[in-house]
Structures are given as C-alpha cells and as structure tokens.
Design a binder for these strands. Sequence first.
DNA 1: CTGTTAGCGCCTTCAC
DNA 2: GTGAAGGCGCTAACAG
Lengths: 345, 345
Amino acid sequence: MRTARRATLRGMGHGIEDVARAAGVSTATVSRALRGLPHVTDATRERVRLAALELGYVATPSARSLATGRTRTIGLLLPWVSHWFFANVVEGAERTLREHDHDALLYTFDVFERGPRRRVETHVLRGRVDGILVVGLPLEPEEIVDLDALVRPLVFVGSGPGDRCTIRVDEQEVSRIAVDHLIGLGHRRIGHVTGHPDDVSPWSAGVLRTRAWRDVMGATGLTADALAYGNFDVGGGRAAAHELLTRHPDVTSVFVTSDEMAMGVIAAARDRGLRVPEDLSVIGVDGHELGEVVALTTVAQDVHAQGVLAARLVLAQIAGEEVPQRVTPQVRLVLRGSTAPPRDR
Amino acid sequence: MRTARRATLRGMGHGIEDVARAAGVSTATVSRALRGLPHVTDATRERVRLAALELGYVATPSARSLATGRTRTIGLLLPWVSHWFFANVVEGAERTLREHDHDALLYTFDVFERGPRRRVETHVLRGRVDGILVVGLPLEPEEIVDLDALVRPLVFVGSGPGDRCTIRVDEQEVSRIAVDHLIGLGHRRIGHVTGHPDDVSPWSAGVLRTRAWRDVMGATGLTADALAYGNFDVGGGRAAAHELLTRHPDVTSVFVTSDEMAMGVIAAARDRGLRVPEDLSVIGVDGHELGEVVALTTVAQDVHAQGVLAARLVLAQIAGEEVPQRVTPQVRLVLRGSTAPPRDR
DNA sequence: CTGTTAGCGCCTTCAC
DNA sequence: GTGAAGGCGCTAACAG
C-alpha cells in the first residue's frame, strides 16, 4: 500500500510534493521553477509559484543542504559579542549575509579568559557552514590547520595571518598616528595600555599595536617602559591605568589600544583626581560612539563597513570569485578633548 | 556496478559508514553508540568511539536534522546587535546554548528604521530552528501568529506579550524608581527621553516606561509634558535632549529609558553649557559599563543573566518541561554623580 | 520543457 | 545486543 502518502514533514507545513500536486507538475519542476532555474515555461513557473505561495511552502533547509552540500550559512567565530568592535562587525556581516539569503551562525570562543587558553573547537563547524568569518581571534597555527580541514572559504577581520584574506587596519599606522599626535603636543612620557598579557599571537591587534608603540617611541628616542594590560574592557582599562600611574607617576599621556579601555583610563584618572587632558592626555582606538560623550580623542575606523565587506568576501569566494588577500580600511585621527599639551611640572 | 562505493560526502571527511567499517559494526550500532543510547555493549561502544575519533567523524548536521526533525539550533530574533542590551543578551544566550550543544542563529530585523515598519519575515525560520528567542522586538499580532505557525517554543526577552514565556523587568517599577529618585531630590520639572515615536506596541519597553513615567508624574501632581524621542542610541539621545531643553528650558532633570540615550543627553547638556548634575540631573536605565565613566545614575539590570535564562527556558521547553510564563529580573538603583537636587533659579 | 529515478548521510523501526 | 532496510525532503542527472 504505497498509495497512502505518509504525510510526515513533522507538522512543519507542506512539502514539495504537495506543491507539485497542487500545480499539476512533478517535484523536479517545482524545484526548478522555485529556484529560478532555466528550462521552465513562464506559465508553469507562475503556476508553481502561486501554488507554493498558497500552501506557504518553503524548502526544508536540511533536506536541501543534504542534497546540495551547501548550507547557505556562514559561521562567525569571535571571542565576544558584547564588545563594541565585535558587535558592530557582527551586525554589518549579518545584515549583508541576509540580503544575500544567507544565515549567520554565531560561535563565541573567549580565548582571552583567565586560565589556560582554550582551543577553538572547529569541528563543531563541520557540515554546518559554507564559509567562515574569523573576527578578532588570534588563532594558533593548529587551529588554522583545523579550519583549513573544513575546506571552506575563510575571511579574517581585525586579526589574521598574512597569507589569508584579511580585513584589518594598518596597525602600525594606528600606533604611529596616535603616538605622533601625543609627541606633537609635546609629550615625552607616553604610557600604553593594551589587551591581554598572555596574548602573544603575532597577528593579534593588541600585540601589533604595542609593538608599533615601542617602535615609534624608540625611533623618537623615548623610553617605552610604562605599559599595562587592560584586557580589552572598561574595568580592565581602569585597573590598568591605576597600575600604570602608580608605577610611573611621571607619565603625562596614555595611548590605549581600544576606546573601551581608554574610557576606563579616563575613569581611573578621575579616581585619582587627575584632570583630562590637563594632567593626563588619553587617546584610544576605534571610534566608539560614546567616545563623544567623554570627548575622547581616538584613531577611528569604520567597523560596520568591515563586517559588510567581510560578508561580501566570503560570499564572493563561495561564488568562486577571486578576492584580495588583504584589505586595509582607512583610519583617521578624531581630535576631541582628551588630549592636550602636557602641563609643566 | 553498485559495488563501487561512491565516496561522496563532498570532501567533508568521513561518514558513518566509514566508522562502521572501521569498528566492524553496522551503521545503526555506530549511531546508537555515539549518541549514548542504550542497547550497546560497553566494549562495542568504546570501539566505535575510538574509530570515530581516529577518523575525526562528526555526524553531518543536515543529514541528522533531516532524519530526526531537530536542528539543535535556536533562532535569535532582534533589531540590532550593536546596542548594549542586545549584545549582552546575545552573548549570554549563545554561551549557554553552546554549553548545551546548540547553535545560535542570528536574525536581525530593524523594525525601528525610518520608513514603513518592515514586517518580520518569520518564514526564513521554517525548518531551521528548534526554538526561538525574541529579544526586544515589539511584534505585531500577525507576526506572533506567523511565529506560532512554526510550532516551536518561543521565549521573549525585554519585550513580549503577556501570555507567553517572557523575561523582562517590571517596567512600571523601573520608571517609578527613577522618577521617585528625582522627586525625592526635589525635582518638579522632570523631562523624559524615550525610544521611537512610531513605536506604539503595547509591550515595547520604551512605551511601557513612558506610560509609567506619565502615571507616576500624574500621581504626584506633576505635569508630564516634556517628552522627546531618542531612537535608542547615543546620537538620538543627544538630539532629543536638545529638542527637549529648547522647548522646555525649565526642566531640571531628565529620565531616559536607556543608558546609551542618557549618555547622549549628558553630551547635549555639555553642548549647551549645562553642568550635570548641577544644572541638569540625568538618570538612565540599563547598567551600561560606560555609565561609570560619566558617573551616570541608572536603574540597572543584569542583562547577561537574562540571555542565559532565556536560553535555558527554550531548551527546557524543547525538553518538554514546563516553564514559567513570566520571569521578572530584579532592578536596582545605582547612584552615581549625574543626579542631585535642583539648583534654585 | 518536463518527468523519472537515484541518491545526499543519518536515524529508526523491526527482525534476529 | 546488533543488523537490515526503508525513509527524512529535496536535488540532480538522465531520458523523453
């Protein structure tokens, strides 16, 4: 008795067979018609479309994926979403992906948390995604190997090995702009607050900015000894600044590798009764909206645009197109009230 | 010639058959063994486990989904991720879901954008998710109907109809705490900045807080006429404050329905040469980390915890457990420097 | 242009 | 406790 159609579809609606029956065609034709493939009469296509619409038919993604090998889903790998940079990349990427009928799957791996560095479990991505966006995650070489094993296009944002499609600002330039600005104002004792002390990845943004800070300082004949770690958040920046200012009370300005930490530094200055910028100049990196509220001078970048571009580049790779190996978004110095010439003291 | 095993799996690794062969058992046994189902000897299970490990076998999600009808994926529906509240809910939810081997699929629908309210296309969720988290999205009745048609557990966070599993603070209490605080300080002219003017949903957070502001003001015999809309972001809050203070120069304090907008209000005060809190008191809602930097008094809530709980509640529903229809997280007044008694003038 | 027929990789009854 | 076989819903050759 194979006549009795097992109307399964687990209570999810109608299947392709229902549409086929309603339109009086075969399932193959329905599939072709609905996906806009050639070799279908306009009339048939329209008939199928109507039938599908009426029944509220949408192809079951897992069935489609199983048959095609494509998931129309992109994995977003990142440490946090509650940080400004990441939230904005994610938002830009997700919107762009959706415009192109792709889904965004979120995977957070907080590799910066205290304790031994947890390895990113790339195997959870197997068969789930057509492409991967790695955002601000300084991966170990073995992790890259694991990702490569997935045989899916990869795009890195805000961190990444040199030999892969990577979108990131010129970290050297970022530090140079910031430090040059402070030097230009007359500062000689320039402190530095950066990310995580255990982060030593050669392509971590924090590491690169710190290295460039050292370079610029050295090239100008200044000593780069006032350094503290703020773990990329407000509270961390505040604590780091306290530590820094206690150990190096002669510091007149601080270059901070993120606006969130920079605002923490400003809070610390206030804690200590120091006025910004009269007693202490502070410059950050990012272009956080709230920087305007505290008049934070910063080296700004358009993060949303980076998310959009990243999405476009994975999609392009999936489509078999060539993509640039390296995109370097512009940065610009945004002068506000947190930097000024040092007071004589 | 059906002997020639078509080793497809589209270059993705090994399939269940490979594991079966390696372990010398059938695919059925592999399936049972790997998923911890009963009726498998410890010895066989171990053998299968080893074989799978060695081959790096992971069941293809789409195949599994097609066979089981479950996707182990939860859809996150929200307007933005770049706003503090949302980024934190998402982060809490994603981590919790991952701990329970579930994926988080992101769907942003900016229903607050200018122009006609875009309808949330729930059909993109069909067959993609086992459950749905609706975060801070004031949906229309028809949209709820569409969601219900998916026959999947639903949890609302930060907004939601009264008759569904909803996690949200008591909005009345939020407004009461804030306004009472200002009244207690001696303010009589209390302005208000809230979200989007077109948002009239009876269960939008902004709408409810504004209504409660009116109620509390009225109950105290104060006029609630100084109102402006800040669209839930910093720039919007700033613009709204300018409008408000121009129209109602006698206002001595402002109750703002989010910390991000409240910080915009503080920026506007500075623009106008008004000192906070001497000339203008400002109180927000949320507990944004950066509130500390600008000494923002606020009615705080634990948003990360709400994300965690939301994830737990969908998972519980999927497991067939009963869940509370309403969870009301605690809020607390965080006194900082942005509120003070009004100056006589 | 359209229908038929195999799978896609895994799960799941049902025998053994 | 284990294996055989059919099915999940859709796509993709291949005929016609």
